[in-house]
Simulated assay, not measured.
Amino acid sequence: MNNSSRTDWERIDAMADEEIDTSDIPPLDESFFATAKLRMPRKSKSTNSMNHTLNLSEGLYARLRDTAHRHGLPGIEQLLEKWLLQEEERHQRQETVRKITALREQLFTKYGEMLDSVDLIREDRTR
Rank of each mutant, 00 (worst) to 15 (best):
K82M: 01
L84E: 13
H69R: 06
T96N: 08
G75I: 04
L107G: 00
L107A: 05
A16E: 11
D66N: 04
S117R: 03
G72I: 02
D21L: 02
R104H: 05
I121R: 15
D29A: 07
D8A: 05
E10D: 13
I25L: 08
K37S: 06
T35R: 15
H91V: 11
K99R: 13
G59V: 03
K99Q: 14
D21P: 01
R70Y: 07
K45V: 00
R93L: 11
S117C: 00
A14T: 02
T7N: 08
L64C: 01
G112L: 00
L28H: 04
P27H: 05
E113T: 09
D13S: 00
R125Y: 09
T101I: 09
L73N: 02
E58S: 14
S44M: 10
A16T: 10
E87N: 14
R11Q: 07
G59Q: 05
R70E: 14
V97T: 12
S57H: 03
L107P: 02
L103N: 12
D17M: 10
E87A: 11
D21I: 01
A34R: 09
R63V: 12
T35C: 12
L54F: 15
E88P: 02
R6S: 07
L120C: 08
T35L: 11
S31K: 09
A68W: 02
A16G: 08
H52S: 12
I25V: 12
D116T: 08
L73M: 01
A14L: 03
D124Y: 05
I12W: 04
D17E: 12
H69Y: 08
L107Q: 07
F108I: 11
A102K: 08
W9I: 02
K82W: 07
A36D: 07
E95A: 06
N2G: 02
Q94R: 04
Q106C: 00
T35M: 10
G112S: 05
F108Y: 13
N2I: 01
A16S: 09
A34Q: 05
E95L: 05
I25D: 03
R39M: 10
L103P: 05
S44V: 08
R6H: 10
M15V: 04
A16M: 06
D21K: 04
P41D: 01
L73Y: 01
K110Y: 10
Q92K: 11
E19P: 03
T96K: 07
A34N: 04
F32I: 13
V118W: 13
E89G: 05
Q94G: 09
S49Y: 11
L80W: 03
N51P: 13
E77T: 15
T7F: 09
K45H: 00
S117V: 00
K110V: 11
P74V: 00
I12R: 05
S4K: 07
I121G: 09
V118H: 15
T126V: 12
I121F: 15
K43E: 13
E87D: 13
M40H: 14
